[in-house]
Structures are given as C-alpha cells and as structure tokens.
Simulated scan of single mutants.
Amino acid sequence: MEILRNHPCHTQHELEPQNYTQPYTCHGCKQKGFGPRYRCEKCDFDFHQACTYTGTDPVYHDYFSGSKFMFLRDPPEPCHPTCKIRCDACRNYVNGFVFHCEDNDLDLHPCCWNLKRSYQMEDVKFNLNKKMKGKCMWCNRKSLKDGGSDNGWSYVSECKKYHVHVTCVTEMALETWYNNNNGGGGGSSSSGGRGQESLALEKKVKELQAVGGYGDDGFGKNKFWRILKFIIKTIVSIVIGDPTMILASFFINLLP
C-alpha cells in the first residue's frame, strides 16, 4: 500500500496507508472496515483498499459470465422510490461505491467484488454460489434475517452438505469486537462485555454442535470446527478489508 495522491474523492490531502485496530466506516462504500485502510488524519477520512479503484472502463466478474460492470461512486437509482439497492453478495444496502451491471441489475460492494470463487480446506472444496440451498453452518438458517427477497451469496461444499452465508460471519465478528471493546473505541475491554459475549458465543457453539451435521461419512467434530474457522477467517478478512486477518483471528480466538 503506497501513499495515494490526488484521489478524485479526496484531492486536498494525500491518503496514507494506516493499520489501526479499530473498525471504521469507509467513506467510499459506506460499509464497515477493519485494520488496514487509506486514511487522511486531517479530515478523518478512510478508504478500504478496494475502494481506491478509479477505473472508468467496463469490468467483468468471472462469476457472472457476460455481465458488464461499471464502477459507480453513487448508487444507481432504484426502480421505485421506496426501494433500496442491496449488494448481491452480502445483501447489505448499497450506500456508496459499487460495481453495477445495468443489463442484469447486479450490484457488488468493492470488497465483495474481491471474494474468491472457491476455497479448498483439507479434502472439502467450497464454491461460491448465488443461492443458498441449505442451512448455514453458522446461523442455522437458509434465509437471512434481513436479506430482502434473496439469501445472498454463500460458500457451499461440493458434496452440498455444508453451507455458510457470506454475511453471517462478518456481522458476528464485528459485533464480537464491539462488545469486547466498549463499542469499538479501541480501549480496554470491560469484564462485563467479555462475560456477555462469552455467553453469547457459548450459546452459539452449543447450537452449532447440535445441528452442525458432523459425525457421519467421516466429517468429524474436529474437522467441522477446522473448516468453519477457516471459512470465517477467510471471508471476514476479505469482506471488511482486513487482509492481515486481525479481526478474524481475534474472533476465532474467542471460540473454543
């Protein structure tokens, strides 16, 4: 990451690479970020690395064959005034920078644009899918609580038995960090916050153990946890713009 000069969205000062261990709101996509970012201290201005993109030519995503995307600094106009544009990957609202395909009505946050299409963990391969076809390993639901009419992207094992929403793990990771740092201020954690979050995670762990689906066809308990932790660390590090996996590692260490 090198110093950015004369960025079209912030020409008055240089944007310097920083690596604070607090979440921030990106001034580009308006989504949460963590760890490495481009920042102007004088203006309290932050960018995801992915949001520094300035291209004006059409770009193509190998997940959408034949779809042509344009990088927009403002969200496209919705089809109806009461509608809001959602990212087709994480299903969160699009409030700023976005890759938009007008022909197929597709929208992707810049960080979601960077999600890998497949991961190999031990002998299990997970592929990125548009549709959720089973219950998420993490939230134990097929539908997102607030995903509109779509479930968002998910990683699905090739055996079709194991699924995880892209957005579930990032939201839980950020919530965990905030609860352990008094709202994200970066100070020391309160014992009360740790206690509450530990109880929440303990409850979630018990739920996963009850419905995780391991124990048959060689997919044992330890392997289930290793794969789930790998997915969490990988997705969190990409979606919130933390290539060093600081936040993801912090979150994983709270799990037994």
Rank of each mutant, 00 (worst) to 15 (best):
C159E: 09
W225R: 01
H163M: 05
I238G: 03
G187Y: 04
T244V: 09
I232C: 15
D216L: 14
D150Y: 12
V164F: 09
N151E: 09
K161P: 04
K233E: 11
K206I: 02
G220T: 04
T170L: 13
N179D: 08
S189C: 09
E175N: 12
V164L: 13
V205W: 06
G186I: 00
G184K: 06
A200H: 11
D216C: 10
N151Q: 02
V156K: 04
L201S: 07
G220V: 04
F224K: 00
V169P: 03
K233I: 06
Y178V: 07
W177T: 00
V164S: 10
S157N: 08
G220D: 12
N180G: 03
I235D: 03
H165Y: 07
G184P: 08
G220I: 05
S237C: 08
I235H: 00
E207N: 12
I227T: 12
A210Y: 01
P243Y: 11
G192P: 02
S198A: 14
K229Y: 14
V169F: 07
G220R: 13
Y178E: 14
D217P: 02
E175P: 00
K233H: 05
S188R: 11
L208V: 10
G215H: 10
P243D: 11
L208F: 06
K221G: 01
F224A: 14
I227N: 09
G152N: 01
G241R: 00
K145N: 09
S190F: 02
G195N: 15
E171T: 13
T234H: 08
E158K: 08
A173V: 13
K161G: 00
E202M: 15
I232H: 10
G215L: 07
E202Q: 15
V169I: 14
I231F: 15
E175G: 06
K221N: 10
L174G: 01
G215P: 05
G213W: 05
C159D: 14
V169N: 08
K145G: 04
N182G: 11
S188M: 11
H163I: 00
Q196G: 09
S154W: 01
Y155K: 05
G195A: 08
G195K: 15
N182R: 11
A173C: 15
I231A: 11
C159L: 09
L199Q: 11
N180F: 05
E207Q: 15
K233T: 13
W225E: 01
G152W: 00
